[in-house]
Design a protein around this nucleic acid. Structure first.
Lengths: 188, 188, 188, 188
DNA sequence: TGATAATCGAGACGGTACGTCTAGTCTTGGT
DNA sequence: ACCAAGACTAGACGTACCGTCTCGATTATCA
């Protein structure tokens, strides 16, 4: 016998309002200033409605990212034919991206989210960033797949993350050097 | 002639008590659960004494790391003659390290600290992890230096950071593959 | 139609716990040692719950007094038929009253509260002390009312306050003289 | 044999700077906002220099008042020949006086000081306010002295204090009524 | 004429309380 | 059962003062 349930079903309007609010607050003030209270206020939603569906602010953000609300089309790499240049451009864009015009680096905020939320961490590598990167990288490296490709993708993305954390400035040239260090040898 | 000031001098005992407290709380509960209030309580110190010398908990931790209180000897790489194996072993150790027996990964906590504190971020790459790594890595790569070496070191360390954030398990073999992806071609 | 609001309603249990705590701390240690933090601790209540309903400790005490928790029956004057003696006895009692067995004078603490809190100041004269006094005083002075009565009541109560502030000792005889100075002439 | 002492003697400059600072801060912000730290800062003096000579801020203020720095000539009553009007005018002035142009009532601040400091309390009645009042009052009441005069003075001054605490407005007419209530009967 | 000792400005120290903010839970009334 | 609203306990935030202490420099008196 199936378990039956009565009452209204989850409100899609509330879900969207919450994700919208979370995204706009994240881009305005960064992950550390993001609060459940603030999301609820801006979304015009009771706090309980958030806690009912997400265990933490990290998971709200994880879902928002997953739906492409934070990075939009930026997850996809350009394809100009020059794989080396495409990769460097994409990495530079990721590195340079600000959450808001005068705000924190978006990548750094993303790392903060990943450090605090298992779900975001999982997705950061598996779906959000590493996955789109992998595809183009595979082409550049002669169609390799498997652990060898994963290592290269992790190395590229990880280096940019580490550099974002270091607060130093890196430009297009540095990224090209980075791409060469990982892709170059295989391409030579 | 410099302006001189008289009066009591900074208490070294208080400084040490604060760093000790910060380190023990960090290893017990991780960076996110670390609080100024908690540090002051455990150190037996007024909160103002912390704020007088450090702007944030991130900077307290940064100083503790800098003095080797968090990583101890682990910052130095082994030297068995087999550079490839040494690097993989060191990375695996870093990846595996727990803050406490049942605790969070120490590397992940370190990344959280770096994401929140500019000072820790700067040092994470410049002094704490990348620097010791660079030396051994240079040997393994035929004595190269400069941006090419930096790129390799960032790639190696960054990959491990990204993998730590992803919460997946990686073992010695994966690290060896990683080392090969970056060092290998040059070493071959 | 009035704007309606839904949601949880103010907790009467919390309100009472706060007033109880405030009163017991006030009588134990006096107004200057009374703290919001201490009230919250003893009441087993979050600080925010106090700040939500009262702007300052003075207003908490004002409400406690208004509900008769601090002076109890002492606000009412005795009626033995001898108005002169009744008034003197009441004033002496007020003057002599300690907040706790070994504590500060309660009247002095009350004055401190009134000096610091507009609400308490207002009520000290209007409701708490002067009002009960006025009634009996009117009888003693041949049923007068209005500004003339107010002046007499203020003079009587004010004199006792001033004497409490002076830390000198005054006894029943002094109070009788005081009553005579204000009521006497009219009663003679 | 007398105990001998060597070393520099108390600095009069420091004493004056402290009293000046205390007075100016008192008149600017009132007794409750007066702090030892603030006095020291404004006076350009070490905190210890204050604590060496005065046990509390109340005692600093008490000394300042005693030297006429707070009330100046206002402690003396006018003498126009009309004692009744002189008394009312003096009381009104006392009641109306602001600590600063836009500040708290000075009398209320004085009462706060008296409630908190035994020394100030003692002097408020004995020397500062009641004493000057007594002289003129004695004339107005036919030269009486002793407890009867004290009662009248306490009643007059006390009434004004109580009214200041109540935050209500009282004008010249009210004060005249008050004077009549206490002086009048005897003068009739 | 030193040595001695109390003074001074400055400010670090261990604490307590401030008033605000957020976490996560619970309660109410409405849909 | 869900929702918006928001009160509840709990506790951290960063700041302001408390009263004590330590520091080095500066006087005065006494040996």
């Amino acid at each position: 016998m199936a378990l039956s349930r009565t009452g209204p079903v989850r409100s899609e309007a509330a879900r969207l309002a919450i994700l919208d609010a979370a995204v706009s607050l994240f881009t305005e003030r960064g992950y550390d200033h993001l609060t459940m209270e603030g999301i609820a206020r801006r979304a015009g939603v009771g706090k309980q409605t958030i806690y009912r569906w997400w265990p933490s602010k990290g998971d709200v953000i994880a879902e928002a990212i997953l739906e492409g609300r934070l990075l939009g089309g930026r997850r996809d790499l350009p394809d100009t034919g020059d794989a080396r240049a495409d990769l460097a451009a994409w990495l530079t864009d990721l590195f340079t991206l600000r959450a808001s015009p005068d705000g924190e680096g978006l990548l750094r905020s993303l790392v903060a989210a990943a450090a605090g939320s298992a779900e975001t961490g999982r997705r950061l590598r598996a779906e959000i960033l590493a996955a789109p990167l992998s595809h183009r990288l595979s082409q550049a490296m002669g169609g390799i797949t498997g652990p060898r490709l994963d290592a290269a993708a992790d190395a590229l993305l990880g280096a940019v993350i580490l550099r974002a954390l270091s607060r130093e400035d890196f430009g297009q040239d540095d990224m090209l050097l980075l791409v060469d260090a990982i892709v170059g040898p295989a391409a030579r």
